[in-house]
């Protein structure tokens, strides 16, 4: 047990030194780092929580998100045309800043961490009070007042960041609907495990590509209950922008309606907390225009299919031995849930 904890301890000691130097530049010499804890154990990102204590004694609660020190590239997309739709830490932090400027609720990103000999690249954000666990947001009494507002608020927020002018955005990968569909089909084919249900979904979407819509904007890419921060009053932050890309903005709205983020509250189509009409009202109020529910339906089907393929990707990451993980193996079987959801959705 000792041996297991040691590397982590030294990692946090090394990081504390890096942070002290970096924060001295921002807040002045003598700024101390306290309560440094690693939040996520994910292999692809490191998230750390800590407080910066200024020389005058004031505290700033901060979050650092950086690339992992022992770089393990997400290999599951290797060899797949288009590669993984993910951005680097600098782009992610920059998108949070832009979204904030456009009026979407996001944590403030005060500064960045540049890559050097001692650290990978990362960005800092203010640590906000709130709940991000989807299950709790739907279940706990503390959010009873917030829940009825959320569908409208997430619609409103999406309209704000979808409206960011293209020329302000950092360079990002982009895929129009047809290209994205092809992207996931290629991945699925690479597993050599035919899924007639998903096949039917691909066919259905292909036939209705005109429903995808014409617009092409910033996409959050993982806009769902689980990546939003909520307090007693409602939405206070949109988190986790690492899957951001350029694409059809309705993709975010449809993704928010996939059943997997409803945590059992299936009658509330939007994240388990609201209705599509509220989502679309919020979107219109945020300046996104009036969206035809048929387009959301198209993107809900698309999202359901996409989640199924992502489950397969994780399952095969384990099966192929790239990263043996009981969690990935278990998620692999959740593809069946999405296949079921998909076929329930389709007429």
């Amino acid at each position: 047990m000792e041996a297991l904890q040691d590397p982590d301890k030294t990692a946090s000691e090394q990081l504390a030194a890096v942070l002290r130097d970096r924060l001295a530049e921002e807040y002045g010499t003598g700024t101390e780092i306290v309560a440094l804890v690693r939040l996520s154990g994910g292999a692809s990102r490191e998230t750390w929580s800590f407080d910066a204590v200024m020389p005058d004694g004031t505290r700033r609660p901060l979050i650092l998100k950086r690339d992992p020190m022992d770089r393990q590239v997400d290999k599951q997309f290797e060899g797949v045309p288009g590669g993984r739709l993910a951005v680097d830490r600098w782009t992610e932090g920059r998108l949070l800043q832009l979204a904030g400027e456009a009026g979407a609720p996001v944590p403030t990103v005060p500064f960045f961490l540049a890559k050097d000999r001692r650290t990978t690249q990362g960005f800092f954000s203010h640590r906000m009070e709130g709940e991000a666990l989807g299950r709790r947001i739907l279940r706990e009494d503390a959010y009873a007042v917030a829940r009825p507002k959320l569908a409208f608020q997430v619609g409103h927020a999406a309209a704000r960041f979808h409206g960011i002018a293209r020329d302000l955005l950092p360079p990002m990968r982009g895929l129009p609907a047809a290209g994205e569909l092809q992207h996931y089909r290629t991945i699925m084919d690479s597993f050599h495990q035919p899924h007639a249900g998903f096949e039917y979904g691909f066919r259905w979407l292909q036939e209705r590509l005109e429903l995808a819509g014409e617009r092409y904007t910033l996409n959050h890419g993982d806009f769902r209950n689980g990546n939003i921060l909520v307090n007693g009053d409602g939405l206070c932050g949109v988190l986790d922008w690492e899957s951001a890309h350029l694409g059809n903005p309705n993709s975010d709205l449809g993704w928010m309606c996939v059943r997997s983020w409803r945590y059992g509250y299936h009658d509330k189509v939007v994240g388990g907390f609201g209705d599509v009409s509220e989502l679309l009202d919020g979107y219109e109020a945020g300046g996104g225009g009036r969206i035809d529910p048929a387009e959301i339906y198209f993107w809900q089907v698309f999202g359901t299919l996409r989640w199924g393929i992502l489950c397969m990707i994780l399952g095969f990451t384990h099966i192929d031995g790239e990263q043996r993980s009981i969690e990935y193996a278990a998620i692999g079987r959740r593809a069946a849930e999405t296949e079921y959801d998909l076929l329930q959705l389709l007429e």
């Binding site: 899924h195 099966i319 009981i326 079987r333």
Partner: peptide, 25 residues
């Protein structure tokens, strides 16, 4: 059934016990 098959899931649990649990108990 999809993959991971039941056998692959059992294998994953066995590996979890052997690689992650056994060395720490």
């Amino acid at each position: 059934t999809d993959r991971p098959t039941a056998a692959e899931l059992v294998e994953a649990v066995r590996e979890f016990l052997a690689d992650d649990v056994a060395p720490n108990v």
